[in-house]
Design a protein around this nucleic acid. Structure first.
Length: 971
RNA sequence: GCCCGGAUGGCGGAAUCGGUAGACGCGGAGGGCUUAAACCCCUCUGACCCUCCGGGGUCGUGCGGGUUCGAAUCCCGCUCCGGGCACCA
């Protein structure tokens, strides 16, 4: 008897409940079916992927793009796929609203992260990269992303980087025609130079020569100096710890590498550069054509850093040479009391005197016996100091006198010429005129070195008052420079007077005068520098360049591409903690690859291959184009296919990807580089779109709580226990809670696999979309996930009997109240999807489903539930497909039309509007939805509660807003 | 220092053409179902005060002002948090 009563714990979960196990079954089934049926294959208008185009030819195209990931070895956490899910939701919605949608995925697999990981694990980067891609691809597939799998690519594919090399050659074989405002083939430049139709660009000819004087080698050097891809020996960011040079964008404010946080030093090295500066103006101006978040545009504008001013020439005292300076304040020229050259400036040697002039103050000499020694010592010290040191010491000004004087062109005054590291070699002309009274840095330098300070812009009275000075106090009393707008003073010579002018007026006047004198001209400069494009690493695209015996670079002919990476045993970079160590590209160790015999049109000759590789960013500069036509072996993309997916829809539009989703961290790196390459390809006639990415959207990040113990170490967040009193403990010890980006270092990662196991992929997708606006960062709270899982369970129960698995929908007609709720939901869902506010779509569907559950506890009308299934589909596609099928539909709903709201059903016949007295809600009245202001007023005044509260008081004014409210204003 | 973005219940967030603040979810409270529990369903849930238990009032969207019949929303001045740039002449 006893055992009869011993009711063992039975699992009474209904057999057909939507739980994690059922979700997994459904998800696997539909993922298989989508793959088998090619549901997300997007037909091209022509070429090998054009099958089925006739079916979709009348649809509007839509190209959705994600910033593709680095296939790192550490696997995904739930924060990684946020953007991919959002793009997928939007792409699915677009497909259901009549678009031919292209959405696919790839891997940015070259570069430091992959290589560092490979070094750590001791394996060849290709092996680890391929394994990582396979793993990441599996993890992403589990989310049910609707990608066209035929177009998946990796930047490390030989057939991909073949075209990366080809595009590099386009840059190498082109120059920027400043008059035409676009890139053109270098061959045309040579023809025009030979014909005398064109002069070489400034600075490319050897001093005092003409093109016609030059021999073949000299001409070759001049031509090479015009190329968009060129070799230069300029100070670059050298990172011994990584064994490679880095782009400015890859060095952080502390003067350390973004990757690995190693010190970076500036030193001159022979490196490949890309002439992105030629495109500064277009990169700036064309931002106006783009539908990008304003902050990102602002960051690009900042980075390009356009400023207008004047170039002014300071001649030498007696000799025939001069220094060109750039200034944004030509109006202060009369106050220029010295000139500073960057220590690395080409003219420094020429301007360094043999001996100190009579009466040189000792503090100007750096304690050196003569100017040459002083300059040499200062330059050596500057070169040794890392960026970080220069940063840390930025408040103290250092420099030395060259022993020479230059002539201020407006007043003939001799001014001393210094070198100082506060003047940067790469900006403007690398030289400045110093106006201590009106520039903070010059002021500090002048105070340090006892240089003259001359007031030439008179500050307003408020400035003096703000510094506790008497109005008009002498410059010797000023606590710092005056940099604001004021009135020009002491700025006149026999020819021109600025006195009394406001700053803009004075700028224009003096610039015009300098122009007439031939000593200056209006100038625009940019902060943007040319892009340092070579790296001393193994895991990157080899340059398609060979060097001849004379030291000239030659393009490897296009028909001999790709130049594949040689297999070598030791692919690690030569790293060092010695800042004087020199780069040693690993490819230089591939001895049998290095020397090559080629016929470049003048018979077989031997060449040495370029041993640098391209930077990480190269592959991501054009991948969106290769997605379009991934198998083409003749061209990188068929022009007809490019025009279809990316061409401008109307004159004056940029064209490009319709929606590009990714993190804000690429604001000035990838997004600027890719725009630059795209514009070069446009100039050379290879693409029809002016810009690669028409609309950009920055998704937020998933953040999570992290916990530290008493010693400040992070403890696993998953094992922290929350107490009732709001405290947190780990292993019985109290811990401190913080908030940060989810990741390994904070020990607060949650993996998608945990979510699949507990709820399934649809729930994970839905949760990620529900927690907040797509562009906002949001905290991860595993506790909250249950909410959206319950929603899916309820929707499932609307259709399926949990015990029997039978479909329970009825054929009953939908009552008007439900119909209106349905159409309001449809309307809101469409709008939410359209504006990428997916969180509100989830809310509206939930609201509607709550209505269904309370209205139809035993079976929902089919016509009330089917549109909801379709509305849910972009967010939770697997469960939606399954329900759709069980409701009797044979084919996937991915191509079904998204329901359309009936406008007539969006308005009710009567509405309840609030009645306010003096702006405070006091009552409500029910009126016809289209009630006029007069009717509203009458209804309000007739309301019992209102008459009671008014108590006969006079209503001074009535504001009646139809459909909104009535406000009675009482004195 | 300069340039951006943000701040709404215990928590995530909704409402931005100025028009009922707090949709939806989590958490919490109560009830139904159950021998019991889970699941599920229903009700309530910004704070404070009053209440004849029907309800009513005051305050309230980071802070201080302002415009307006009416402000989370617009304007001025701040605070704090997050991001970008930073000797760029």
């Amino acid at each position: 008897m006893a055992e009869v009563h011993q009711v063992t714990h039975r699992d009474e979960t209904p057999l057909h409940r939507y739980d994690a196990a059922l979700a997994e079954e459904i998800e696997a089934k539909w993922q298989r079916r989508w793959a088998d049926e090619g549901t997300f294959d997007a037909p091209n208008p022509t070429g090998d992927l054009s099958e089925g185009f006739a079916r979709v030819g009348d649809r509007t195209k839509f190209f959705a793009l994600d910033m593709f990931p680095y296939p790192s070895g550490s696997g995904l956490h739930v924060g990684h796929p946020l953007g991919y899910i959002g793009t997928d939701v939007y792409a699915r919605f677009k497909r259901m609203t009549g678009h031919n949608v292209l959405h696919t995925m790839g891997y940015d697999a070259f570069g430091l992260p992959a290589e560092q990981y490979a070094i750590e694990t001791g394996q060849h980067p290709r092996v680890t990269t391929e394994a990582n891609i396979a793993n990441m691809s599996r993890q992403l597939a589990r989310l049910g992303l609707g990608h066209d799998r035929r177009r998946v690519l990796a930047t490390t594919d030989v057939e991909y980087y073949r075209w990366t090399q080809w595009i590099f050659l386009q840059l190498f074989e082109s120059f920027y025609d400043a008059e035409a405002g676009r890139a053109r083939p270098i061959a045309e430049l040579i023809i025009e130079l030979d014909a005398g139709d064109r002069e070489p660009a400034a600075g490319t000819l050897p001093q005092g020569t003409a093109w016609s004087d030059l021999d073949a080698s000299e001409r070759r050097r001049v031509v090479d100096a015009h190329r968009l891809a060129y070799v230069s020996e300029a100070p670059v960011n050298w990172c011994p710890g990584l064994g490679t040079v880095l782009a400015n964008e890859e060095v952080n404010a502390e003067g350390r590498s973004e990757r690995g946080n190693f010190p970076v030093v500036r030193r001159p090295l022979r490196q490949w550069m890309l002439r992105i500066t030629a495109y500064a103006e277009r990169l700036l101006a064309d931002l106006d054509l783009l539908d990008w978040p304003e902050p990102i545009k602002a960051m690009q504008r900042n980075w390009i850093g356009r400023s207008t001013g004047a170039t002014v020439s300071f001649a030498a005292d007696g000799a025939g040479r001069s220094i060109e300076v750039f200034t944004t304040r030509p109006d202060t020229l009369f106050g220029a009391t010295y000139v500073v050259l960057a220590p690395e400036h080409d003219l420094v040697d020429a301007w360094t005197a043999a001996a100190w002039p009579e009466g040189t103050p000792t503090q100007w000499t750096g304690g050196a016996p003569d100017p040459r020694a002083a300059v040499a010592a200062y330059r050596a010290a500057t070169a040794r100091r890392s960026e970080r040191d220069r940063q840390a010491e930025s408040h103290t000004k250092t420099g030395v006198f060259t022993g020479s004087f230059a002539i201020n062109p407006v007043n003939g005054d001799p001014v001393p010429v210094f070198i100082a590291d506060y003047v940067l070699t790469g900006y403007g002309t690398g030289a400045i005129m110093a106006v201590p009274a009106h520039d903070e840095r010059d002021f500090a330098f002048a105070k340090t070195f006892g240089l003259g300070i001359v007031e030439v812009v008179h500050p307003p009275a408020s400035w003096f008052a703000g510094h506790g000075l008497d109005d008009g106090a002498g410059v010797e009393l000023w606590p710092g420079a005056f940099t604001g707008d004021g009135t020009a003073t002491a700025s006149a010579n026999d020819d021109v007077s600025l006195d009394g002018m406001a700053v803009p007026e004075a700028k224009a006047a003096i610039t015009a005068w300098l122009g007439v004198q031939g000593t200056g001209r209006a100038t625009v400069t940019y902060k943007l520098r040319d892009w340092l494009f070579s790296r001393q690493r193994y895991w990157g695209e080899p340059f398609p360049i060979v060097w001849d015996a004379e030291g000239f670079p030659h393009a490897v002919p296009a028909d001999q591409l790709p130049v594949t990476l040689p297999e070598i045993d030791d692919f690690t970079p030569r790293v060092s903690d010695d800042p004087d160590a020199l780069p040693e590209p690993p490819l230089a160790r591939a001895t049998d690859w290095l020397e090559v015999t080629l016929d470049l049109g003048d018979g077989p000759r031997s060449y040495r291959r370029e041993t640098n590789t391209m930077p990480q960013w190269a592959g991501s500069c054009w991948y969106e184009l290769r997605y379009l036509d991934p198998n083409n072996t003749d061209v990188f993309v068929d022009p007809e296919i490019e025009a279809y997916w990316m061409g401008p829809r109307a004159a004056g539009e940029s064209g490009g990807v319709d929606l590009y989703v990714g993190g804000v961290e690429h604001a000035v790196l990838h997004l600027l580089y890719a725009r630059f390459w795209h514009k070069v390809l446009f100039d050379l006639g290879h693409v029809s779109s002016l810009e690669p990415f028409h609309r950009l959207f920055n998704q937020g990040y998933v953040q999570a709580y992290a916990y530290t113990d008493d010693r400040g170490f992070h403890v696993p967040a998953a094992d922290v226990v929350e107490g009732d009193d709001g405290t947190y403990t780990y292993d019985g010890e109290p811990v401190h809670r913080q908030y940060g980006k989810m990741g390994k270092s904070l020990k607060n990662s949650v993996t998608p696999d945990e979510m699949y196991e507990a709820y399934g992929a649809d729930t994970l997708r839905l949760y990620e979309m529900f927690t907040g606006p797509f562009d906002q960062s949001r905290p991860w709270n595993t506790r909250d996930v249950i909410g959206v899982h319950r929603l899916l369970q309820r929707i499932w129960r609307n259709v399926i009997d949990e015990d029997t698995g039978a479909v329970t929908v009825s054929d009953e007609a939908v009552a008007p109240e439900t119909l209106r709720a349905l159409h309001r939901m449809i309307d809101a869902a469409r709008e939410g999807y359209d504006s990428l506010r997916f969180n509100t779509v989830v809310a509206r569907i939930t609201e509607y489903d709550n209505h269904l559950i309370s209205t139809f506890p035993d079976g929902v009308p089919r016509d009330a539930v089917e549109p909801m299934v379709l509305a849910l589909a972009p967010l939770a596609p697997h469960i939606a497909e399954e329900l759709w099928e069980r409701l009797g539909h044979a084919s996937s709903l991915a191509w079904e039309d998204f329901p359309v709201a009936d406008a007539a059903l969006l308005v009710s016949e009567t509405i309840e509007v609030p009645v306010q007295i003096n702006g405070k809600v006091r009552s409500h009245v029910t009126v016809a939805a289209d009630a006029t202001p007069d009717l509203l007023e009458a209804a309000a005044l007739a309301d019992g509660r209102i008459t009671e509260l008014l108590d006969g008081a006079e209503v001074a004014r009535v504001i009646a807003v139809p459909g909104r409210l009535v406000n009675l204003v009482v004195k």
